[in-house]
Design a protein around this nucleic acid. Structure first.
Lengths: 196, 196
DNA sequence: GTATTTATTGAACAACTGTTCCATTTTGCC
DNA sequence: GGCAAAATGGAACAGTTGTTCAATAAATAC
């Protein structure tokens, strides 16, 4: 007996990616076997290799997709405005975008060491691009005299670390709504940048 | 032929812990085999089990030791003073203490999911204790009218995430000294707390 | 210098690893 | 309804996993 329940090429691919994303986030890349992923989707392990050349590509694909989408989504949302308005937009965007992509965010940070050197470099370049967007906002604010920032690069790292940290504790069922959290973090971001 | 190079019980134990700490930080708990650790120390794998009952205990021991030392070190350093002075002391202590313990900090954050539920709960309790120290400082500052903080708990999480983030980018060989970084982060911490 | 304790080796265990491949089944096209 | 293409199952490969254990070597105590 071979396959037991029909052929579903168009939906199997996404289902594999979904399962891999969730399992990698929950248990870590090294702890998740190809058989676990296959079992989650209801396949035998061999069938996975119709959709990915190997396990590494599965991880890298998920991370690259996430980072490319992140950069693209921000560049779409970012329009002109004062440095202050752009900074507020960045803070709120970062919190919102990351909140609904917990697993991908977690993987993109935790599994960097499981990438091959070439793949690592590509992901790091995307991360630098995203960080660069915030650095540019801060630098522009300094130039216009709106912000008081000793070092835009360091302040950008600090703000991103602070904002990303929301994912480690925020739960929809908690005492604060995401809008509340956004407001509080925007306030701290504004003050950290010395904005009015 | 059995053992080849002498018996060294008092130094073998620490050497195993050192190797495990470094390897877990570099490659991740799941990706490091007991044989890799043994090989790093110059032992056969069986000898490790004179020093640890199993791999999980090796990880948990490292994490608990780190967290207990962290809490104890802070409580020793923390003396009285104004909320502002205590906040500054906390920010500078956190950066300094974590900077020289990169591997342990990394493990204590990244390998939480590889702990058994009971062990996880113990580590989380220690983390809550440490966070509680900062929350108490912020709450006291609010009570005395020195800080402007909407929610001490959230501000504490934000500050800790920001400060811990230094470890992801700071290198001794970079353009800034650790003292420079301390100053900049204390400034951002102060402003995030609405302190003068 | 002998006896006892401690530390270590080396082999073994069953289970699991990523990946390949061929036979088989299902799908989409005519 | 028949045929090619695509998707899947199932088995196999060689290597690795955490852990146990008897045999052996070295360190310590007397």
């Amino acid at each position: 007996m071979a396959r037991t329940s029909g052929s579903h090429s168009e939906i199997t691919g996404p289902r594999i990616l979904d399962a891999a994303l969730r399992l990698f986030a929950q248990q870590g890349y090294a702890a998740v076997s190809m058989r676990k992923i296959a079992s989650e989707v209801g396949l035998q392990v061999g069938a996975l290799y119709n959709y990915t050349p190997d396990k590494q590509s599965l991880l890298f694909g998920l991370m690259r997709e996430h980072m490319e989408n992140l950069v693209a989504a921000w560049r779409e949302e970012a329009q002109g405005g004062t440095p202050n308005a752009r900074l507020e937009k960045f803070a709120r965007f970062h919190i919102r975008y990351h909140n609904v992509r917990r697993d991908a965010v977690f993987i993109a940070y935790m599994e960097l060491r499981n990438l091959t050197p070439e793949n690592f470099e590509i992901i790091e370049e995307l991360r630098r691009q995203y960080e660069g967007e915030l650095i540019a906002i801060l630098a522009e604010g300094v130039r216009q005299g709106d912000f008081q920032v000793a070092d835009p690069k360091i302040t950008a790292m600090a703000i991103i670390a602070m904002l990303t940290g929301v994912n480690t504790w925020f739960r929809e069922t908690g005492r604060l709504s995401l809008k509340d959290v956004e407001d509080i973090y925007w306030d701290m971001t504004r003050r950290a940048a010395g904005a009015s």
